[in-house]
Design a protein around this nucleic acid. Sequence first.
DNA 1: CTGCATCCTGTAGGATACTG
DNA 2: CAGTATCCTACAGGATGCAG
Lengths: 136, 136
Amino acid sequence: MTRMATMTAAQRRDQARREYDAFIRSCPTNQLLDRISDKWVSLVVSALAAGSMRYSDLGRKIAGVSPKMLTQTLRALERDGIVARTVTPSVPVRVDYELTPLGTSLSCLLSAVKDWAELHIEQVNEAREQYDAEEH
Amino acid sequence: MTRMATMTAAQRRDQARREYDAFIRSCPTNQLLDRISDKWVSLVVSALAAGSMRYSDLGRKIAGVSPKMLTQTLRALERDGIVARTVTPSVPVRVDYELTPLGTSLSCLLSAVKDWAELHIEQVNEAREQYDAEEH
DNA sequence: CTGCATCCTGTAGGATACTG
DNA sequence: CAGTATCCTACAGGATGCAG
């Protein structure tokens, strides 16, 4: 009989995925990619790059964001030390958000990404047109 | 009676989201962020940074990836002109993938991201610990 | 004003099986 | 070897309503 101890391809991949996941979670680069790749994060950071803003101002400036995602994004960024949250206990309460030094640094990295994007987007678009023109 | 023409908050946000989505799709930076933020893209690009590889080699090197996602990722990168696909019609067929010049350039950008991550991850971790230690 | 809790849906993506 | 096709599920994230 065939060795039952032999793992199936799926089992092997499953185990590999577990190890991989553990690796990913401990990998700074991927942690950061997860962070900046978030749809709303880059928008919040670039909005705040211009200066501190209130919660509702962010909601208006970032068109189409739901309160839930805005809060979720801001909490995550606050936890990571990217943004600072300041509560003014007036009535009604006023909450301001601003970039920390670390946040400003991240904002610079996003600028680098932006520069690369604008420099190469045309090349990408050409590649896409050419690819789509061929038959696949 | 109140004006029925007045939009609810949800309706306004919905319209805003539509406009926003259109904007996003036309924005190079966000297109690129969508691209490099993909879980597998960064892994494929960095794997290929070392040189050309076959399909199954990539599958082994990138632990835990399913054939489906590997193919999907490679197709997207090929379409964008990031990787080149070379078929050698032997039996069995052999397919090699390698970075294009554009792909190499992207690989450099990813290195910049990596450098930033490794430089600041400790600061982020400290911020997280401090945040988690406080009550919320 | 600034959120949080709940519900609900679309979809990304994994498992599995099959083909040239 | 290098994929493709199908199914299925988990989770991101939007709508809504309520609270401090």
